[in-house]
Design a protein around this nucleic acid. Structure first.
Length: 766
DNA sequence: AAACGGGAAGAGTTT
DNA sequence: CTTCCCGTTT
């Protein structure tokens, strides 16, 4: 390891300093990942630290595995014994060992936001409130904020002041008790309980203080009070703290992140020192200039300026489109052009960032039309699909019989004759006898109000769950899931249903099985002869984020929110929707100026993801709630000096990227005058359907992807069609549905398939 | 118990 | 425009 060759002076200081608690101010692209990995490698190889003594906290699981991989490359296989994870995963791992001190069982499960929301709704109605007057979302937010400030329900109710807080104060303890009874933790509990554990149990605290001789935290600007407290508790004065952060990239204050954690670093830790990394190795000079100029508009920030030795590169492009579709077309056109003229460019080099998930739709529509491959992060996730949630609910109940939310989810899935009436009987019984719903359920024979045949059905269901629990003892999770399908007829029911939708679900379930298999195989690679336990598996599933699954090898354009973009880099970056009210978002503009500053930081993060080229685009007309509104151009564009821009609108040919036989038109007169736009008004409306914003030619399918409909009227029985994947096949049957045509097609390659004429990739060949 | 339809409400970012 | 919830029907 030749550190002097690999690192600059400041980076080297950060790696070699073993005396102080270190705060590294690391600007965007200043090589902080490099510093972190070399630091760890240095500690292990040169300073004799045991990997087991090193704790590294990252923002995503993806970053964690990346770091682990790089360290292993530098120090060899011993690196795998390091603790590298997110805050949440770290806490879950720790609690898995120690949680019995709080009366929970070590097989606790983790509720995601949706599951916690359900439980909160239940508590609201149980308290006698109406969900219409007391919004479960608001309650959830208040409870979450409270826990993130280290307040439990008792200290919260003491401080509850306004009427809504008083209401929450009644619901909060109930919710906490329900979680306890279900042996479940929500995301905030993971952190909260870990801090409580260390605070209340000096022996445990000392144990971990002694174990972790070196604690490294990445993205420190986005830590909240609890997370900071956790690190403070783990620091005993003799072990070392090494945190990396950049106040200009703080974008999670709405989630409780406190930049003050950086400012108070020297107060919280002993013998501190600050090292600044200001040389940027990622972006060209023009890009960095623009980012610097933009962020200078923020009042509250520590003084620093990134610089680079790299060449000026290309100017930033700006483009003001007529509407979102045209904005997306501009991106599509640019991407295609750049790939065509640059042999070293391919789709994976491009990323499109937006402020809100809903903005992805316009881009998706155009990209499908233009055959540009893309992957979208966020939005409807794999684990959010009904059938996958059902499977996870089954597994959670198998792992933890007390999990009431999961139990009620699957109680009648697939339908087994246990309806709402039965459920309310059980609920009533549990209330009257002061036992939990689950206890009442498992002792169903005692509930006389439920008729005997239904009781038998419930007993059969409980038996299935018990059998599966036994089965798991001697089998893998993958095998248990297959057994589950067998016993519950879950797949069978879907196959019998025999619709596009249901068969698609079957495919998703098979994909799920593959995921499970990979999980188990990975585990056995890392720890030989160590079977992946079900609760470990469920824990990992609950804590992975979408970005964690990002695969840079796939050759597709990346679509994601600006928040998701943190920590990534791309040669070419588009930021779309730079309009007042969108970005900066309206909700940030009504509050204090702090909020707009956070939006500006978000924009800064977006721009600094780019290595070579940045496009900042906006559109004049924008749909919200099906209503088209005019949008002013974002202030952020105005804050970047004009001389750093190329105005793409001046190149008028771009406005008609598809030639005259394309059915593109600007279907409205421009509201604002810009550049040479007379040609807009010269256009007449022709076939404006597809781009009028109504999007009726697109359909969101069950797997969350957007499919383009096409004219389906001319398919009939006996036609031979060509399918993109399955080759040729013959139509056996057609069935008209409300707005589509279902086809039964026999393919030579795969046999009988049900497909939707409008969205399947087929064309008639005979 | 499930399927259907009307009507109201709703999209800011996420571990 | 979309989604979700609730009441009605089969």
């Amino acid at each position: 390891m030749e550190l002097e060759k690999e690192l600059n002076t400041q980076q080297l200081k950060a790696v070699l300093n073993n005396e102080n608690s270190l705060l590294i101010f690391a600007g965007a692209g200043s090589g902080k990942t490099r510093v972190l990995t070399y630091k760890i490698a240095y500690l292990i190889k040169e300073k004799g630290f045991d990997p087991f003594e090193i704790l590294a906290i990252t923002f995503t699981n993806k970053a964690a595995s990346e770091m682990k991989k790089r360290v292993i490359e530098l120090v060899g296989k011993v690196g795998q014994y390091m603790w590298v994870s997110t805050f949440h995963s770290f806490c879950a791992r720790l609690l898995r060992k120690e949680i019995s001190r709080f009366g929970y069982n070590e097989k606790f499960i983790i509720y995601n936001s949706a599951e916690s929301l359900k439980l909160i709704s239940k508590c609201i109605t149980d308290t006698g409130y109406d969900l219409k007057t007391v919004s479960s979302k608001s309650v959830q937010e208040v409870i979450s904020t409270s826990k993130n400030k280290l307040m439990n329900h008792e200290s919260f109710s003491k401080k509850a002041f306004d009427p809504f807080e008083k209401i929450v104060a009644r619901i909060f303890p109930l919710y906490q008790n329900e979680l306890f009874k279900a042996n479940a933790l929500d995301f905030d509990d993971l952190l909260f309980l870990t801090v409580k554990l260390l605070k209340n149990n000096p022996d445990v605290k000392e144990k971990y203080q002694n174990q972790f001789k070196y604690i490294l935290v990445d993205e420190f600007q986005d830590t909240n009070l609890v997370q900071n407290e956790l690190i403070v508790l783990l620091h005993d004065g003799s072990n070392k703290i090494f945190v990396v952060g950049d106040d200009d990239q703080s974008i999670y204050s709405w989630r409780g992140a406190e930049v003050s954690n950086i400012i108070n670093f020297d107060k919280n830790f002993s013998n501190t020192k600050i090292i600044k990394l200001e040389q940027n190795y990622r972006s060209t000079k023009f890009i960095l200039d623009a980012a610097n100029k933009l962020i200078k508009n923020n009042f509250s920030r520590s003084k620093k300026e990134l610089w680079t030795q790299s060449h000026e590169g290309e100017l930033i492009s700006k483009f003001r489109a007529q509407n979102e579709q045209e904005e997306a077309k501009f991106a599509a056109k640019k991407i295609k052009d750049m790939i065509e003229s640059n042999s070293d460019k391919s789709f994976r080099d491009f990323a499109i960032f937006y402020r809100t998930n809903a903005q992805s739709r316009a881009i998706e529509e155009i990209f499908i039309r233009e055959s540009i491959p893309y992957r979208i992060f966020g939005g409807l996730k794999f684990y959010d699909r009904k059938e996958i949630k059902d499977m996870l609910a089954y597994l959670k109940v198998i792992s933890n019989p007390k999990d009431v939310i999961s139990l009620t989810r699957i109680i009648n899935v697939p339908t087994r004759g246990i309806g709402n009436t039965t459920i309310s009987h059980i609920e009533k019984f549990s209330r009257n006898n002061d036992i939990t719903f689950c206890e009442a359920f498992y002792g169903i024979e005692r509930i006389n109000t439920v008729n005997p045949s239904t009781r038998k059905k419930i007993r059969d269901f409980i038996d299935i769950l018990d059998e599966l629990r036994d089965y798991l003892d001697n089998h893998t999770i993958e095998e248990t899931i297959q057994q589950l399908w067998e016993k519950t007829s879950y797949i069978k029911e879907l196959v019998i249903e025999n619709t596009i939708e249901s068969l698609n679900r079957v495919d998703n379930l098979k994909e799920f099985l593959t995921v499970v298999k990979e999980f188990e195989e990975n585990r056995s690679l890392i720890q030989e002869n160590n079977k992946l336990s079900l609760h470990d598996f469920l824990q990992e599933i609950s804590l992975v984020s979408e970005v964690d699954n990002y695969d840079e090898n796939a050759d597709t354009v990346t679509l994601m929110t600006l928040h998701n973009a943190k920590g990534l880099e791309f040669p070419v970056v588009f930021i779309v929707g730079l309009e007042e009210g969108i970005f900066p978002h309206v909700r940030s503009m009504t509050g204090g100026s702090d909020d707009v500053e956070e939006e500006r930081r978000l924009c800064y993060v977006g721009i600094t993801r780019a290595k070579e080229k940045v496009f900042l685009t906006s559109s004049i007309l924008h749909y919200i709630y099906g209503d088209q509104r005019e949008r002013l151009i974002s202030r952020f564009i105005g804050e970047i000096p004009e001389e750093l821009f190329i105005d793409e609108n001046e190149n008028i040919s771009l406005l008609y990227p598809y030639g005259k036989d394309d059915n593109y038109v600007a279907n409205r007169k421009p509201v604002f005058q810009f550049g040479n736009n007379e040609r807009y008004s010269g256009q007449k409306n022709i076939n404006t359907d597809e781009f009028s914003g109504k999007s009726k030619n697109f359909k969101r399918s069950s797997d969350g992807s957007l499919k383009k409909k096409k004219d389906f009227l001319d398919f009939k029985v006996g036609d031979v069609v060509e399918h993109k994947l399955w080759g040729s096949g013959e139509i056996l049957r057609t069935k008209k549905s409300s707005d589509d045509l279902e086809l039964d097609v026999v393919f030579k390659s795969v046999g009988l398939k049900k497909i939707l004429a409008s969205i399947a990739p087929i064309k008639k060949i005979k």
